[in-house]
Design a protein around this nucleic acid. Structure first.
Lengths: 129, 129
DNA sequence: CCTTGAGCTTCCAGTGACTGGAAGGGTTAT
DNA sequence: ATAACCCTTCCAGTCACTGGAAGCTCAAGG
């Protein structure tokens, strides 16, 4: 299977797949003409990677998860540990964004937004609010 | 004022301040010895930048906001427009993170997390959930 | 006067996870 | 044969810094 078809099936751009090979996440074989030749197992791995990345796991998380995915004897506790840690960091990110959002929403609300020059948003940012 | 003191007062690392000069956000003067020499107005601008960045505005947003901040005749509508757009993109980011969080939380909940190898998290990621 | 240590300078390189584009070779269909 | 499309590699750029090396300046202590 060439990279184009794999890309369609795994839902990832060819560029990304080449990049994943570059950083040793996958190791596709090569055809006589130099083209990458993917097996079904590569498609599975790439699908796995796409989903994990969509859930916000870092590449290094993915590398570990992929190792566990391929390890028949792994303990589910190891996987749960990584996922739970990631869950915490997502929650932190959400909390941080919410706080930013609330501050900004208040500033936007307070700004009359017309042709007058005085603006609570800039006042606040300059520390003169 | 040298960069060290400005850094303390504006709450930004010296490296970041040099970088901001590099990309023309600020233009500090120079002393005879080659050191950067900051005025009060530079400290104000850097404080402004620090706060805007903390609210998640991009550097390019900051460049525009800084321009408006220095323009005595700006219309508050222009500022409100940028802030409101940013608010929308924060809301989108939060929504996306929440969706990721919910999916992941469900997977973590479903994983028994012991020494057995079967794991709903990996099953789901592999598309065999 | 000399040294020590802190603070300043520039420049280069790396981060994460791709993405765009150029230059060139292979394949397929007409 | 030729067009159109696929594949290859390599280089550079993204964003907003951050780390580190090599070297200059300055203030204080002996």
């Amino acid at each position: 299977m060439n990279i184009g078809e794999v890309a369609k099936r795994a839902g990832l751009p060819p560029k990304t797949i080449r990049y994943y090979e570059d950083i040793d996440l996958i190791r596709p074989q090569r055809s006589a003409n130099g083209y990458r030749s993917f097996r079904e197992s590569d498609v599975h791995k790439l699908t796995f990677l796409g989903r994990a990345r969509a859930l916000g796991f870092t590449i290094e998380d993915c590398r570990i998860l992929l190792g566990l995915y391929e390890d028949e004897t792994r303990e589910s506790a190891q996987v749960k540990e990584i996922a739970a840690q990631h869950l915490v960091s997502i929650d932190e990110k959400i909390a941080q964004l919410r706080s930013m959002r609330d501050t900004l929403a208040e500033l936007v609300r307070a700004c009359h937004g017309d042709d007058r020059p005085d603006c609570p948003i800039l006042s606040d940012l300059s520390g003169q609010g």
